[in-house]
Design a protein around this nucleic acid. Sequence first.
DNA 1: CTCTTTATGGATATCATGTATCCAGAATAT
DNA 2: ATATTCTGGATACATGATATCCATAAAGAG
Lengths: 142, 142
Amino acid sequence: MQVTKTLDYAVRSLTYIGHEPIVKHSMKEISEHQHIPLNYLAKIMRRLVKKGIVRSMVGPYGGYTLRKAPGDISLRDIYEAIEGEIRIVDCMDGNGICQLHEACPQLPVWDRVQLSMVKILEETTLEQMLSDRGIRGFTRVN
Amino acid sequence: MQVTKTLDYAVRSLTYIGHEPIVKHSMKEISEHQHIPLNYLAKIMRRLVKKGIVRSMVGPYGGYTLRKAPGDISLRDIYEAIEGEIRIVDCMDGNGICQLHEACPQLPVWDRVQLSMVKILEETTLEQMLSDRGIRGFTRVN
DNA sequence: CTCTTTATGGATATCATGTATCCAGAATAT
DNA sequence: ATATTCTGGATACATGATATCCATAAAGAG
Ligand code: SF4
Ligand code: SF4
């Protein structure tokens, strides 16, 4: 139940690019500024390209740029590009579906959690994240 | 970003016990009815005991029973007994805190997600889950 | 007291997956 | 032609979830 480093890297990269959406940014540049292992970043960028979130140009002065407006890229898009379809429980046994599936007491709760999470991710665009930038001091109220 | 099998097992066990909260249920019994590996279940029960969620009695006719009323056991309690403190991002580098921590664009979002999740987990008690039992047909609306 | 049942604790093995690295090759600007 | 940068595949490494084993202690039944 955690945000993977990979997803974190992806968001870092996109916010970095989104800061100057027109300019091309090379992996090397992103890697250095955002402290992401270069070769690993390559893998991440590939997924973002495939999902149509960024555009890539190879060759000198090549790099990445956003493919859509920051306001049209939701955190959900990013999440799914990296992790695939959101599913916080996979009700699978070795054989297939869990036998308790039909009348499972906890499934409804997890469903609620997932829905609320998806809602937030969907509402949050890259643009929003960028404008939150620099805001500090929210408190982790556990 | 997934519910671990371990947590799933824990909730299964507790709903099972909670169905007859007074009666003692042995690990063997729980293991069989809920399809949980016996020896692994032992580990799980230990954590629940330590957190005061269940009471254990050893010896013949021993087993487990709830220590609190089902209405007083929240899913959050269970979650934390199994997984420890809830923290969906750990902003740690190799060296320590992530350098971007001060002005991170994504931290606020994850915080919102976590808060909403904690809220739901907190509101949901074992009692509620038990009364949901048998309810079917919620739809996964991704 | 003895026997059986059941939980406890620690050690260890297994497996999955997230994370990272390497490299050969293709594209492209100069 | 050359240097740059992305691409794709293979592979290594680390971590944590999952599972198993066993020796021991507690406690009820006779
Ligand atoms: S017990 Fe409920 S939640 Fe867990 S796997 Fe089976 S159906 Fe899914
Ligand atoms: S980038 Fe933001 S979210 Fe990711 S680790 Fe650093 S501070 Fe935490």
